[in-house]
Nucleic acid binder design. Sequence first.
DNA 1: ACATACCTGACTAAAATGGTCAAGTATAGA
DNA 2: TCTATACTTGACCATTTTAGTCAGGTATGT
Lengths: 141, 141
Amino acid sequence: MKLTSKGRYAVMALVDLARFDSINPVSLRDISLRQGISLDYLEQIFSKLKKNQIVQSIRGTQGGYVLSKKPNEIKLTNIFHAVDEKVKTVQCKKESKKGCNGKATKCSTHNLWDELETHINSFFEKKSLEDLLKNNNDQRI
Amino acid sequence: MKLTSKGRYAVMALVDLARFDSINPVSLRDISLRQGISLDYLEQIFSKLKKNQIVQSIRGTQGGYVLSKKPNEIKLTNIFHAVDEKVKTVQCKKESKKGCNGKATKCSTHNLWDELETHINSFFEKKSLEDLLKNNNDQRI
DNA sequence: ACATACCTGACTAAAATGGTCAAGTATAGA
DNA sequence: TCTATACTTGACCATTTTAGTCAGGTATGT
Ligand code: FES
Ligand code: FES
């Protein structure tokens, strides 16, 4: 099980944004340089963040992005959902009655994976951007 | 983040094994049929489980595999470790002082992912094969 | 007008995944 | 002893996912 770069980058970029957007909108170019993330890739990510009302864009010179909400209102769940970084532990379709093997009942491990998914998601629901800012106050770049 | 089939299959197969091995060694062919997992793939998985002393093999006709330990002594951690289903959340090398971006310090999200990894692993350390058997006593196939 | 920076969609190299295939070896039972 | 069963090993491969790149746009402050 591993976390993909898309999810990691989204959070990294938003932490960066949260730290600097109180002064001016933050351009992706700046984030790209500070965080070492490809500019083109960031654009894809921010397009999704914008669609999900996590950031707002300001076009033109001196433009950039700003958070749409306060850092304590942005949970990791929201971010991950926005960029399609989903936690998937079961093989089967959850809604279906069928098991992952195509049989009529759920397999012997289905409940376990379902518990695991809940366990992981609870972590993402607890953590907000604000929590991350606290941890990094002293680590200004 | 998703769980791979290798990890899922390993657990499914071991639950099957735990349920039936008290009578006779269980052949991979049987597990393959009951669980709907490719026989060739199961062989790869069991080779690793054997190397890690989770199962024992008995060759020849009527042969098969048997658990090496009691179900309550086999944690998910052990199984996952055996088949290289590892939880990886950070991008960087943990031992290194360097960050994922190649910079001198760890990135602003490093601690978060590290916490997440601990959170997930704690789930695997808690759960044993025995826990799974309990849940499925009534679901004999 | 022009530089900046957002916006969009198509494309792609590389890695991981989830297997298959081939050729064995060991052993129980007829 | 022969043979069927079932473990053992290693190479190979198609597909999917990932992590981007590339090539064009469009909007706007100065
Ligand atoms: S994972 Fe849902 S039935 Fe197997
Ligand atoms: S994940 Fe470890 S430094 Fe970024």
